[in-house]
């Protein structure tokens, strides 16, 4: 259940970021186009597949493994990042969001993926830092009275 919850949580973050990025992308490259409703389903499908990237952090026993070393987690994060690129570029070409032979479009997509990935990572880190501050305060309150 925690795996499903984690994927859904990521799905929400990624969908928000992808909608924003799509708005920027369309404004730059497709500003005079008429878009169909299909774009919404396309965005949702890409977000969902991107969210499955969380499975990179699950071990063979089907649990989120926490005893991996920092090096192993860095490797998995890099693999996750390349997976995201594969999904977005693969689906993007399939949905004809951009053309692989247009260097400007490809570069814009790669930069957007990097920015979204880094933003979500940063937001999560800041949230964890805030929680750590609160936890440390509670521990000090509870145990310094002894």
């Amino acid at each position: 259940m925690s795996k499903i919850k984690s994927i859904l949580n990521t799905f929400v973050y990624v969908t928000t970021a992808v909608v924003f990025a799509t708005a920027v992308y369309i404004k730059i490259f497709w500003k005079n186009s008429d878009l169909s409703v299909d774009i919404l389903w396309e965005i949702l499908s890409v977000s969902l597949f991107c969210s499955f990237g969380n499975l990179f952090y699950i071990n063979k026993h089907n649990d989120f493994k926490d005893s991996w070393s920092k090096k192993q987690l860095v490797i998995r994060t890099v693999l996750h990042y390349f997976y995201i690129n594969l999904i977005v570029i693969g689906f993007g070409i399939f949905y004809e969001w951009f053309y692989w032979y247009r260097i400007d479009m490809m570069l814009a997509i790669l930069v957007m993926i990097l920015v979204i990935f880094a933003t979500i990572w940063f937001v999560n880190l800041q949230r964890d830092k805030r929680l750590a501050i609160q936890l440390n305060q509670k521990i000090r309150e509870y145990y310094t009275k002894e």
Binding site: Y57, D63, D66, S67, K70, L73, V74, T77, N124, L125, D128, K129, L131, A132, L135, N136, I139, Y142, Y143, E146
Partner: peptide, 23 residues
Amino acid sequence: ASKSIIINLSKVQSINPAFNGRF
């Protein structure tokens, strides 16, 4: 604290965020 660890919270000096949602 995890599948393999039980911590005595009174022995914790501080908590820091670690990689990927862990602390």
